[in-house]
Amino acid sequence: MKEMIKMVVVLTILSVLSGGGLAALRQNWQEDIEKQQLKFVKGPAIMAVLPDVSNDPTEKRFKLNPGTKEERNFFVGLENGKKVVAFESTGKGFGGDIGIMIGVDPETDKILGVGVTTHSETPGLGSRAKSDAAFTDQFKGKSLLEPMKVKNDGGQIDALSGATVTSRGVAQGVTEGGNIYKALKPQILEKLKSIQ
């Protein structure tokens, strides 16, 4: 019995110390960590899809709910006095979900840029969707309201050689983004008005 109590006491003390310490540490560092996430994950992707903005779009953002899933961040960039928007969408790739950042001009509905943020595609093949700008540049200037397809499926996008599934995933992700954009456009315009 005595041994049993000792076991319980020791494990309880250890757990309490560990849990308490970690919670305190997390609380303290939370803000810095979020900043780092915006800086290293979202920031470069946003700058890549909104090349001509003069502000830091990670600082001007709002959240909207596209319906089924969780809220999405919309990042606002200022381009010569014009407001442009970047947001993230996902497509099904070869090795899992592909995160895709889409930059769009809400006045013309034209795509300003597309960039892959997160993926688990095959290194050297599908991973080129992220590194090969010639592939993602194909989306530039097209209307976000149109569905995107690779040429094999009768569409307008040249697939990466050896990575058709990935290319298809990116195209599907952009189409998906277009659907979100279509559904939320009135709300996006509403929000943009209130942002300086």
Binding site: E3, K6, M7, V10, L11, L14, S15, S18, G21, L22, L25, R26, W29, D32, I33, Q36, Q37
Partner: peptide, 26 residues
């Protein structure tokens, strides 16, 4: 106590791993 040493080790190790993870993110 010897009987719960593995559980205690795991708590200790998990704590430090979480610290490393948070520090690396920061």
């Amino acid at each position: 106590p010897g009987k719960v040493r593995i559980a205690a080790f795991i708590i200790i190790i998990a704590t430090f791993v979480t610290i490393v993870e948070l520090a690396m993110q920061k």
